[in-house]
Nucleic acid binder design. Sequence first.
RNA 1: GCGCCCGUAGCUCAAUGGUAGAGCGAGAGCCUUUUAAGCUCGGGGUUGUAGGUUCGAGUCCUACCGGGCGCACCA
Length: 542
Amino acid sequence: MSADERNGTGGAPPIPGWPEESAQRVEKASALRGLGVKVYPNRYDRTHRLGEIVTAYDGKSIEDLERLAADVRVAGRVLTKRGHGKASFATLSDGESRLQVYVRLDGVGEKGYRIFDLIDLGDFVGVAGRVMRTRKGELSVEAREITFLGKALLPPPEKWHGLADVEIRYRQRYLDLMANPDVRRTFRARSAMVSAIRRFLDDRDYIEVETPMMQPVAGGAMARPFVTHHNALDVDLYLRIAPELYLKRLVAGGLERVYEINRNFRNEGISSMHNPEFTMLEFYTAWFDCGDVMDTTELLVAAAAAAAGEGPFPYQGREVSFELPFPRLAMKDAVGQRLEAESVPGFSRAVLDEPERLTAWLQSPEFGALAARLDLDAEPYLALSHGKRVARLFEELVEGSLWAPTFVTDYPVEVSPLAKARPDDPSLTERFELYIAGMEVANGFSELNDPLEQRQRFLDQLRERERGDLEAHQMDEDYVRALGHGLPPTGGCGVGIDRLAMILTDSPSIRDVILFPQMRPETGRGRASEAETGPDTGDLAE
RNA sequence: GCGCCCGUAGCUCAAUGGUAGAGCGAGAGCCUUUUAAGCUCGGGGUUGUAGGUUCGAGUCCUACCGGGCGCACCA
């Protein structure tokens, strides 16, 4: 391949829709093969990761390194290249660390230098040579031998501005990871957090289990499910919205401490706090009640935080501290405090305890004025039951303002079909949610284990469903049967792993903590993702 | 689902309704300690798509496609 042939109008891109530059890179691959170089070799024996070179030799002076004469073999992706005629520099990255290599014609010979010349940014290369320090003081490996380790036919993200295009960051996360160290840090922190949670539970004799993702009844939460179909069985199945009911079947079976960290699927809107598939931890403990679960949950969350970094954690310009214990606040008290702080005429905390008084207040001009002032939709309240009114007031008035980790307790029974009622007040349940930075992060309760009451709760939910509530819980007779065989007193909790990861990594969007967040599938214009047809099925001009 | 904003070269961005530009990257060339290496040269565009208004549209209007943010729903 002559220079003339590679110049200008050369070849077409190897794959329709790819940039012209990829044609040049294909030609360089051919040139490498012409030199007898394997363009995609199978392995390379390195002696050190790049970071290990830095750790071992960064303290050494030029003279120290000359004396040590350390010969090493390193490998990585070429991030930058600086040519000077018969000597060149390149910076390698192995995803964790960077290291400069110094390549001289005298050091690697004609052929080696020619190979180096054919390397593009983004290619992989192995370098055998001696650890040295340049005049400007940069720790480097001076190459004796260049081994080509893999051609990138497409160019890496632009090196000055990094990768800014949010769409490409999410769709082609590998480019995001290559270009943005913060992104690598975020996902390492997430991994450390999840590992710490597993360790925490394993240390307390919980066993990790896996329960069905495809369920005939989508239970365990209030949400709209995805539906799929099994051909051989000829039945519709739901992607699970929660593992809860299966995990409690396991506790009934004698697995006293179980947990699962896995995906749930909910067919609902996408937002900075919602991805259709998201990761949830659920853990169940026989003989525990709601209070025991809160005690465990706060320790677990604190352990997760400690694994992700040192507190207090900055989050969106504020700070979140995980100091124990987390405050506990009954839902009605939370609403009452908020409304009393607004000094709303006609309102007192006692209103929330008496359905008739709440009804009257919600119909009063004072509430109308408050709703107008706070931009609430007052209309839907009157159609709700007492408990749902309280829950809605909580969601609208309090939820978003709970910044420091806070347990909210005593949820109304109407919104808690799987939780055990309080012995002293059957309108409330032994249930909590943990709020951090205005987000619901965990949800736990004393598990309802009376089969007949559970069945009645499901029937109540069915009535809600008939009235048009698509998120009302489905009837699950098989689960009721499991309770019929006896579930010991049990406490359970679900923790939203993605949201916790957001808080611990100062990520404003759930998409920043999910490697491949859900996006509308790409169409046309060199970006189609149909595997059969490659990245472009249409416009060849692109 | 609704509202607001965005879409110009491979990338980051310019361009009072009047000839589409810069920097970087890529290409050719020089250069044996550079690091956003430097210097020289020549390329690079159906301004997201389709219509419309206008003598004239990157710019104004409509629809569509894609994305972001907010609201709603939820976790």
